[in-house]
């Protein structure tokens, strides 16, 4: 069997709604990936530290709190500081269309908004992960 893609799934910041993150974790698992699930209320520092130790290929965060404008660029910046920009950084959640362009320039590689199928997410990761 091929080496599995390793993905860190985390929920940054103060929001307790993890159904979405769990659905994604499960979908990635069923797509043959190794999912490291770190749970709720993670700081960007915790997420990036875990990503380094786990040597993941992908960091996927779910955010519904409205704090995406602060937390997502911070995670991207910390990854850069750790020389880990080769890790594919994606996010999903309730994120207004108007906010997306700025987030994408800050280093998030994709934003999945409500209505995205898990298949699309899996495909995006497979096609864009480092080889």
């Amino acid at each position: 069997m091929e080496n599995p893609i390793r993905v860190l799934v985390a929920k940054p910041g103060l929001d307790g709604h993890d159904r979405g993150a769990k659905v994604i974790a499960r979908a990635l698992r069923d797509a043959g990936m190794e999912v490291i699930y770190t749970g709720l209320r993670q700081t960007p520092e915790q997420i990036v530290n875990a990503a380094i130790q786990e040597d993941v290929d992908v960091v996927a965060v779910s955010i519904l709190s409205g704090a995406h404008g602060t937390l997502l660029p911070r995670i991207a910046e910390l990854l850069k500081q750790q020389d880990a920009e080769d890790i594919l950084f994606v996010a999903g959640g309730v994120i207004p269309d108007d906010d997306i362009p700025e987030l994408l320039t800050s280093g998030v590689k994709a934003i999945f908004t409500p209505g995205t199928t898990t298949t699309e997410t899996v495909e995006f990761i497979r096609n864009n992960v480092r080889k």
Partner: peptide
């Protein structure tokens, strides 16, 4: 079956 896993001990 899929080779996938959920590694949840870090929680």
């Amino acid at each position: 079956f899929t080779g996938g896993s959920i590694l949840g001990d870090r929680i």
